[in-house]
Simulated scan of single mutants.
Amino acid sequence: MSQIDSLTAFITANMPRRAMQAFSSNIEAMKTLPACKEMGLDQVQLSIIRYDAVLIWERFPYRECDPRLLMALLDVWLASEDRELFAQVGITNAEPDWDIDPIDEETAIVALTVPMAEALVIVPDDAGAIPYQGKKYRLADAEIWTALSAVIHGPADGAVEVPL
């Protein structure tokens, strides 16, 4: 799942239904940065996609729903997401940009712009649409395996299992 899809789903699942009327999420200012590398598990990272996720509430009911809820949800989502690629592409200031324009005493247009960076990954698939190095590939979300423990062999006393 892309970061914009993940953020949109998280916000939609946790905001009151009334606050989500006239809501949209879009991608702006997309560019790719070359970063081709083998990732293991037959995965190939072709590049890193850099874009701005723009979430817009055209009639946000700020009197009924505290706008700080949006900010808190964004902070929680940002804290739970892997933002490692930001450092790789030189993004040092990933602060979201909030633009709030009151319409009347009850509603406002709220626009949130959040910088995003994610890997463009492909995996082999005979039915895939992407020809690469003589094979067919398809788009995929990167799959990362993390070791939870390791066995360390010493020179004299055998193996010891250590949690990581």
Rank of each mutant, 00 (worst) to 15 (best):
3 Q>D: 08
97 D>S: 11
35 A>H: 10
123 V>I: 14
68 R>N: 14
73 L>H: 04
81 E>W: 00
133 Q>I: 12
3 Q>W: 03
145 W>C: 04
134 G>S: 10
41 L>I: 06
127 A>K: 12
128 G>F: 08
43 Q>E: 07
82 D>C: 02
17 R>W: 03
108 A>F: 06
11 I>P: 01
129 A>F: 09
39 M>D: 02
24 S>T: 04
135 K>Y: 06
99 D>K: 10
92 T>H: 14
64 E>A: 14
50 R>P: 02
114 V>S: 02
109 I>H: 07
158 G>E: 09
110 V>E: 00
18 R>T: 14
123 V>L: 09
66 D>T: 01
98 W>D: 05
155 P>S: 08
26 N>A: 14
46 L>G: 02
64 E>D: 14
110 V>Y: 01
43 Q>Y: 07
113 T>N: 08
141 D>T: 15
113 T>M: 05
129 A>V: 13
141 D>M: 08
94 A>F: 09
93 N>D: 15
109 I>S: 07
45 Q>N: 07
79 A>W: 04
13 A>Y: 02
128 G>C: 05
164 L>T: 12
150 A>W: 02
13 A>V: 06
137 Y>E: 06
59 R>S: 10
51 Y>Q: 05
29 A>K: 15
111 A>R: 15
19 A>V: 04
79 A>C: 07
26 N>E: 15
164 L>F: 13
4 I>L: 13
43 Q>T: 07
142 A>T: 07
80 S>E: 14
148 L>M: 08
3 Q>T: 07
149 S>K: 12
101 D>P: 05
11 I>S: 00
132 Y>N: 06
22 A>L: 13
159 A>V: 11
129 A>I: 12
95 E>Y: 04
117 A>E: 06
65 C>V: 15
50 R>G: 04
6 S>K: 10
106 E>D: 13
139 L>P: 02
8 T>L: 03
144 I>P: 00
40 G>A: 06
115 P>C: 10
135 K>D: 14
153 H>I: 09
76 V>R: 11
12 T>E: 12
133 Q>S: 13
29 A>F: 11
109 I>Q: 14
131 P>L: 11
62 Y>P: 00
56 I>T: 15
126 D>A: 15
44 V>D: 00
12 T>D: 11
164 L>R: 13
37 K>W: 01
148 L>I: 05
117 A>Q: 11
75 D>E: 14
102 P>Y: 11
67 P>W: 09
7 L>D: 01
144 I>V: 15
113 T>Q: 10
92 T>M: 10
108 A>H: 02
11 I>F: 02
61 P>T: 03
41 L>D: 13
84 E>P: 00
